[in-house]
Nucleic acid binder design. Structure first.
Lengths: 356, 356
DNA sequence: TTGTAAGCGTTATCAC
DNA sequence: GTGATAACGCTTACAA
């Protein structure tokens, strides 16, 4: 592999000059510049970013640690982060924590050793001593989607309460009263927030939440399935199951289908977190969409501010209710008090939110 | 940030000794080793992987360039690659080519500059000069999922012909004769292979393929939708639409739903490439599942062989037909002669393939 | 068992 | 406008 020294020799200049050409230093004659370029192509020269980073103390690399790479929410988030970082000339290394604190710490360690310029973390439940240390050391760090109590780090998160309130109002207007929630883990800030918002919205609408209508899930398919099973086995099962994320929705859907129940006639379903295929289940699933891509982009802008020494301010982006047909919104769906004006939209399909 | 020199000073030893401790060199006394460890924790020392890589000429990093990060097939692939690489102590940098040759080349360049130890590429259509150069230079490189004609590089791919043959047999046994295919791009090896296998299987079963039953798609949702639209507009539309990948299935499904058609009564649907939510559409979609995770793991083993100087042999892993209900497999599905018996299983759900 | 010192491929300072 | 050269933080002969 050709080195800068080879290029210099081939072009009949010093390594310093080649370096200047590489870094677009204006104080190089057009003529020598061209000679150097010629030498580079002749030798198939690729600058060694490792050596450069050692010298400049910058890697132009960002580390991103996500909760679960098989969750489409995080995939979309990663894509947005990657796109925005690329625009700014940065590469992203993605670490999949698989919702485990030890895996998360493993990635924090490798990313730190690799000297990434900034760290974007969707933190798992625990406040590990490593995370504390990193935050205390003041290294460029931004929390994404989730936050950690007692740790002072700028963050970008989703403001979910308003949309959840809207959903409960929507359900109540449809005639539903018995609404159950399969929550995310209380150890995660997002889990806590959604549960709190659900409770508050129910109270605000004068609806009761018996304890057995609050199922504790863990943001994974299995818990959605198990939670739905327990709810459906109740002497008085809920009219609506509201799930706390898209994977638990997948699980709940599986359980409902396995029992041969019909949505929304036998039980209605609503989901926090929207994914593209929700439109294609029959009936299409009413969901709360998160501003996922914007979340990722905002986080990159924030971490780059930190990296480049500018201040960074935490932000919360609003989620949005997307009404479809899984809660008895249309007469065809077979909801409890369904009555619907004519010519109102395309029932089978729901909307098509654009997902860039 | 503490350097090895600081640790050495703090422990009262030379940097060489600290380095030996870092690299588990056995020729260090238990006693000094402990002193060094103590110094490391006291100083919160993190070895600088950049400096280490410069010296050792190895980064313990693999580059993976995928076709489209929003396609669940590639996500699952990436996850498997990451898991297997991690087991071997490697980090993976994922580049999303977005099915564009220039993006792909961009990532090849950055990954080369970052001196990754090996490169895993799902190549886009074009044989770019950069890819040719890399292959010619003999750098550790493995093609994943797709191959490039005329380029001698070890590869791991899916053997799809057998499963496609099986699907056509299955459809014929169900009484279908007019079967259309929405293909992937002929510029991609996977696109060509699936189309070829489809043609061969149809011929083998004595079924005709009129040219208008072969829609040219591009492995993205839009082309699936457009292709389905053209097929359904035909004077004699097909009985079955077979789509060449999961995103085109999403598109076709959207078009079918938008027209208010019922599956499989009005038109049957089968998909090459299976994703978890296919089980939850009603009816569940009959699909050909790819050994995605194994594909990723095999590719990592292969590239590590190349990296460590061992020979690597190309491999092809078989895809597998997963029969569900979108092709009229059950009378309940609303096939031509729909009539439903009591208590017969769980039609809405189809099977649940385990996806590790 | 431990230390000294050269060198990895850059960038940047200082001369010229 | 260009060149010599020290330095970045490590690893690894080679010496002691």
């Amino acid at each position: 592999m050709a080195r800068i020294k080879d290029v210099a020799a081939h072009a009949g200049v010093s390594v310093a000059t080649v370096s200047r050409v590489l870094n677009d230093n204006p104080s190089v004659t057009e003529e020598t510049r061209n000679r150097v370029y010629a030498a580079m192509t002749a030798l198939n020269y690729r600058p060694n970013a490792v050596a450069r980073s050692l010298r400049t103390e910058a890697t132009r690399t960002l580390g991103l640690i996500i909760g679960d790479i098989l969750n489409p929410f995080f995939t979309e988030l990663a894509r947005a982060v990657e796109d925005e970082a690329r625009l700014a000339g940065y590469t992203v290394i993605i670490g999949n924590a698989d919702e485990r604190a030890d895996e998360q710490d493993h990635y924090v360690r490798t990313l730190l050793e690799r000297r990434v310029d900034g760290l974007l973390i969707c933190p798992t439940a625990e406040v590990t001593s490593l995370i504390e240390e990193v935050a205390r050391a003041g290294r460029p760090l931004v929390f994404l989607d989730r936050t950690l109590p007692g740790i002072e780090v700028p963050s970008v998160r989703v403001e979910s309460a308003a949309a959840i309130g809207e959903l409960i109002g929507h359900l109540k207007a449809l005639g539903h009263r018995r609404i159950a929630f399969i929550s995310g883990p209380a150890t995660l800030s997002t889990g806590r927030e959604r549960t709190e918002a659900f409770r508050a919205a129910m109270a605000a609408h004068g609806l009761a939440v018996p304890p057995e209508y609050l199922e504790a899930g863990d943001f994974r398919e299995g818990s959605g399935r198990a939670g739905a099973a327990r709810l459906l086995d109740l002497p008085e099962p809920p009219e609506v199951i509201f799930t706390g994320d898209n994977l638990m929705t997948l699980g709940a859907l599986g359980e409902i289908r396995a029992r041969g129940l019909r949505i929304p006639r036998d039980v209605a379903l609503a989901s926090f977190d929207d994914v593209p295929w929700f439109v294609h289940v029959d009936p299409a699933i009413t969901a709360i969409a998160q501003p996922t891509a914007e979340l990722g982009r905002a986080a990159v802008r924030m971490i780059l501010n930190r990296v480049e020494g500018r201040p960074a301010e935490s932000a919360a982006l609003p989620a949005q209710l997307v009404v479809r047909t899984s809660c008895g919104e249309t007469p065809y769906g077979g909801g409890p008090a369904a009555a619907r004006g004519a010519g109102a939209g395309d029932p089978g399909q729901g909307d098509e939110r654009s997902r860039s």
